[in-house]
Amino acid sequence: MNILFIAKYKLPHIGGVEKHLRMINEELKKKNYKITTISEEDIKPPHIKYFGLLYIWFWLFKNRELIARSNLVHIHDVFIWYLPFRLLFPFKKVYITFHGWEGKWPIPLWNIINKRVANLLCNGSIAVGKYIEKYYDIKPSFVVYGGAEFDEAHGIKYLKGKTKNSLVFLGRQDADTGINEFKEWLKIHGKHLTVKFVSNDPNPEKYLKTAEYCVPSGYLSYLESLNYGCKILTFANNPLKIDYWKEIRDIYDDKSLKSIPTWNDVCDIYIKLWRS
């Protein structure tokens, strides 16, 4: 089966969505799926409001054979890129993954409408977090949180190999990640801690193996930190992020490492969506 993924970024650009894409691609290829991924790296649009979107539409129209020869199209967040082609290819199966919120609180009305329209016009959807259902008033087909490259030794090996009072902040250092609240917390509670900020590193595992504590910026870094036996601290600056962190803590904090989904588990949800 030929799958066409459409996403804003892919590796070597570093981020949670990009890693999600890479890991799903690898698992799908093991199952003999053929994957093509289109991103800004391929299109190279000018970053000019409105004109950039028109350029993307023009590029996709010129390369519409990529859509035509795929068995299905799966979009990662950027449904507006595909909007005209939903009309041009009305019988093409189209799915979407909503990877999160856009970092703006309160959520702009346009962002809510954008997700609702995408969910309505697609044949099915995956949400990374159930909070998306609450804050965008949509009903996804499936909910995931990401995956981890599970190794049963992690729970023992890395719990014993921790550097006492070491802490790593893992991910983007933008306001929506809670970094400002974390820095305020550090002034009071962190004088005894050795802190390292890690972003734009394709292999954060080397820090998680030895860090006693981790402050993750999102669900994927949360699961990776849990997988390496880190004690996790989270920070929020609005009601959405409070719900965001509570949701994943309620699901995974009191369970064994074996309960953390692998990327093969996440891949199986994609396949289940496409077959439904």
Rank of each mutant, 00 (worst) to 15 (best):
L120C: 09
H74W: 10
T97A: 10
I14N: 02
W105S: 08
I126R: 05
E102G: 12
K31L: 15
Y33T: 03
F91G: 01
L21G: 03
K10A: 08
H20G: 05
I24H: 04
H99W: 05
V144W: 02
I35R: 07
P140S: 12
I96V: 13
R69P: 01
K8S: 09
Y82M: 07
F85E: 04
I126V: 05
F142P: 10
T97R: 10
H47T: 07
V143M: 01
P106I: 01
K134Q: 15
Y136K: 05
F85A: 06
I113H: 06
K134C: 04
K93Q: 12
L28A: 04
V117P: 03
R22G: 09
S39P: 09
R22H: 13
V94T: 15
Y33W: 10
V73I: 15
L28G: 00
F150P: 05
F61D: 04
P46F: 09
F150C: 10
K49W: 13
V78L: 07
I24Q: 01
V94P: 01
P90N: 08
L88I: 15
T37A: 13
V144K: 04
F142A: 14
Y131E: 08
Y55S: 06
I14Y: 04
G52I: 06
F142C: 11
N32A: 10
Y135F: 15
S125R: 06
T37N: 09
P12L: 11
